[in-house]
C-alpha cells in the first residue's frame, strides 16, 4: 500500500503542479481534494478527508498574487496525507508535518520558473522560423518533462522511505514540541487570511471583516450561512449605493 500511495502521490504532484488547466490544477492541488484518492487507496476515505480538511484549513486564505506562491499546499498535502494514513497519526499532527513541506514546495516553483526561461528562448527561435509545432512543445511538452524530474522523485522517495522515519521521530519528540506544532497549525491559517485582506486592500471595508469574525464567534453561524448573509449584504450595499447615485 505504501508503494501505491507513494506512486500516486508522486504522479499527483507532478500533474498538479504542472499547472495544466488554470483553475483545474488549482483545485486538484488542494489537500482536501487529493484526500479522496489517497483515502480510496488506503481504504479509509473518512479519515483521509478529515486529515485533508485539517491541512486545507492552513492554506484556505492563501492567494498567489502575481504568481508568487506563499506556500505550496499541493506538496504539503501529497506528503502529509499519505504519511498520516500509513502511520495512523491524527489530523492535528498531520498538519504539523504538512507545514514544513508547504514551505519547501515554494523552492520547487522557483527552480521551475528559473529553468523555464530556456523554453521561452527556444520558443523565440521557433517563432523566427514560424515553427508553430515548436512553440507548442515549449508551451506544454517541455515544461511537463522538466516537471516530472523536478517533482516525482522527491515525493515518491519521501513517502516510500519516509513513513518509517516519521513514525520513529514522532515517538521521540517531546510533548512541548508536539503541542507547539499543533499551536502552529491553529495560527498559520491567520497568514492566509491576512494575505487576502492585504490583496483586497480596501481599508475602509475592514469593519466587514470584524463583522464576519464576531458573527461566527457570538452567533456560531456556519461558513455556508456566512456566505449567504455576506452575499446579501454585499448586494444590498451595492444596490443602495447605486440608488443613491441615481437619486
Amino acid at each position: 500500500m505504501v508503494f501505491v500511495l507513494a506512486l500516486v502521490a508522486g504522479l499527483w504532484y507532478w500533474i498538479g503542479q504542472s499547472k495544466l488547466g488554470y483553475t483545474f490544477h488549482a483545485v486538484i492541488c488542494q489537500p482536501i481534494v487529493m484526500a479522496l484518492p489517497f483515502g480510496i487507496i488506503a481504504g479509509d476515505v473518512t479519515t483521509a478527508l478529515m486529515i485533508g480538511a485539517s491541512v486545507e484549513m492552513v492554506y484556505l486564505g492563501m492567494v498567489a498574487a502575481g504568481a508568487n506562491i506563499p506556500a505550496d499546499e499541493c506538496l504539503a498535502g501529497v506528503i502529509s496525507i499519505p504519511i498520516a494514513l500509513t502511520t495512523g497519526i491524527d489530523p492535528a499532527t498531520a498538519v504539523t508535518l504538512a507545514v514544513p513541506f508547504g514551505l519547501l514546495g515554494v523552492f520547487q516553483d522557483q527552480i521551475r520558473r528559473t529553468i523555464q526561461a530556456v523554453f521561452a528562448h527556444k520558443a523565440d527561435k521557433y517563432a523566427m522560423e514560424a515553427d508553430v509545432k515548436g512553440i507548442e512543445r515549449c508551451a506544454i511538452l517541455y515544461p511537463m518533462i522538466l516537471g516530472f524530474f523536478l517533482r516525482f522523485p522527491p515525493v515518491f522517495a519521501a513517502i516510500y522511505l519516509g513513513s518509517d522515519v516519521v513514525q520513529k521521530i514522532l515517538n521521540v519528540i517531546p510533548e512541548w514540541l508536539t503541542h507547539g506544532l499543533s499551536v502552529t497549525g491553529g495560527t498559520l491559517p491567520a497568514l492566509g487570511f491576512a494575505i487576502t485582506i492585504f490583496i483586497i486592500g480596501k481599508n475602509i471595508y475592514l469593519p466587514f471583516f470584524i463583522l464576519g469574525f464576531f458573527a461566527v464567534q457570538y452567533l456560531k453561524i456556519s461558513v455556508m450561512a456566512a456566505a449567504i448573509f455576506g452575499v446579501c449584504m454585499a448586494l444590498l450595499i451595492t444596490f443602495l449605493r447605486r440608488e443613491k447615485v441615481q437619486g
Binding site: 471595508y205 466587514f208 458573527a215
Partner: peptide, 25 residues
Amino acid sequence: KELISGTSILGLFMMGALSAQYVTL
C-alpha cells in the same frame, strides 16, 4: 467598480468568518 467593491465587502466578511472558524489560539 461596483463589482469590485461588492466582492471586496463579501471577501472581507468571509475572511472574518473563516478566521473565526479556523484560527485558534
